[in-house]
Design a protein around this nucleic acid. Structure first.
Lengths: 232, 232
DNA sequence: TAGATTGTTAATCGATTAACAATC
DNA sequence: TAGATTGTTAATCGATTAACAATC
């Protein structure tokens, strides 16, 4: 029995949510079991990788049969910490911030919008997606009161660093940075970065070369390929 | 003289846009030269990596001095294919699609919104961010007329595959997929995937473990990390 | 010249993949 | 039992990094 406390490689962690989504789809279809071969096809990776990735979670498959969809779904949700909701705060309620707040995909998947903050006095007090916009100064109280777990930065680049510092000061240890800037945080804080224009720039590069890979692993995410730094 | 036609590693390609942004900032400040050490600090990576990455572009530095900001900026823009604009089409004008259209960051960085398409007849004919929404059926003509280079998918997952097929049929070879689904395209098409909820799920994983890395390489990018597949 | 900093080498590390014994 | 499929090994590949000779 391979126990679950093995260290899971970063590249594997970045793929788990993709498998999770496939499993949800299979569960919706009432598919009882799935082979690594078919799961690989759904996830767009190869079967050996699926088996290796899943083996880090434990030996949850059955030789000759495959993986029990419901069971694997449960184990994977547990591993990803998705058996509970994690409320988020969005800092910066401009175009992008409003869009993220209105985008139902976060709430749907266990990340409800717990709070919105901005520094613009014309925005403070208004309501976006049914959530009142508070002043950034109220962040510590909001984090406390709403049990905020994750901070999303959708401010201009110029203030992203200072916003990240106020988030960490308020006790937030997970940050998703949409601003086009690298933020420095201390080692115990996790940061992921999504830069929309960077993705287009990478595509632009591959256009020139009669198209090389143009896809990525993690993050491709991200590592992503085009991804983040976690500087101390 | 290391010539520029060396194959550039994917991980490096994903970092070039990050360096590019730093260089733009430096050029704005009229900083004439930059060392790998300082550029590394700005980009949130280590100096050896910067030097290795830049060496793939050519020997553009000067020992004892550093890199000429303007010159490196020009070379990097050229390498990334950013000396011209690449108009994009956004397919799916829901919450996310509208947000992307209104988000100025694309146009600002050389990716103007050339067209918007949807299948919803209540949306067709309306205008978003100053651009008229057309029916998806008109995609081939729009691609032709507007010189569309890149397709952005912000549709529901269920139709993403078919939209990607219509894009490639219309001659598009670069796709940025925001829908939470893996799309299969043929080998000559470049796809990158950005899944907003996946990023939060990855952060959720690292919360559990008294915080491991929580950052990534590529799409990151990669790879980021949480990123894409390019399946045939 | 002395100091600074690149460009490249080589060692190391992590991720991918094919192959196959184990086993349902 | 025969067929199917996992879990793991080991080989390979690609990315990172420290170190330092080259050279401005």
């Amino acid at each position: 029995m391979t126990h679950s406390e093995r260290r899971i490689p970063e590249a594997t962690v970045a793929r788990l949510p993709v498998y999770l989504r496939c499993l949800i789809e299979l569960a919706d279809d009432r598919t009882p079991t799935i082979s690594s071969e078919r799961l690989a096809e759904m996830a767009g990776v190869n079967a050996a990788k699926v088996r290796k990735d899943l083996s880090y979670l434990g030996s949850y498959g059955t030789r000759g049969v495959g993986y029990d969809v419901e069971f694997l779904l449960f184990q994977m949700s547990r591993e990803l910490g998705l058996t509970q909701d994690w409320p988020v705060v969005i800092a910066g309620v401009g175009n992008l911030g409003q869009a993220l707040a209105n985008y139902g995909g976060f709430t749907d998947r266990g990340f409800p919008i717990g709070a919105l903050v901005d520094v613009d006095s014309t925005k403070v007090g208004t309501s976006v997606a049914g959530v009142t916009v508070h002043h950034l100064d109220e962040l510590p109280q909001l984090v406390e009161a709403k049990g905020i777990a994750i901070g999303i930065i959708s401010t201009p680049a110029a203030v992203a660093q200072s916003v990240s510092e106020r988030m960490t000061a308020a006790g937030i240890t997970s940050i998703l940075n949409f601003s086009p800037s690298v933020i420095a945080v201390d080692a115990k804080v996790s940061v992921r970065k999504v830069d929309l224009a960077v993705e287009l720039q990478i595509l632009s590069f591959y256009r020139r070369r009669a198209d090389g890979p143009g896809s990525m692993g993690p993050d491709t995410t991200g590592p992503d390929p085009a991804a983040a730094a976690n500087v101390t």
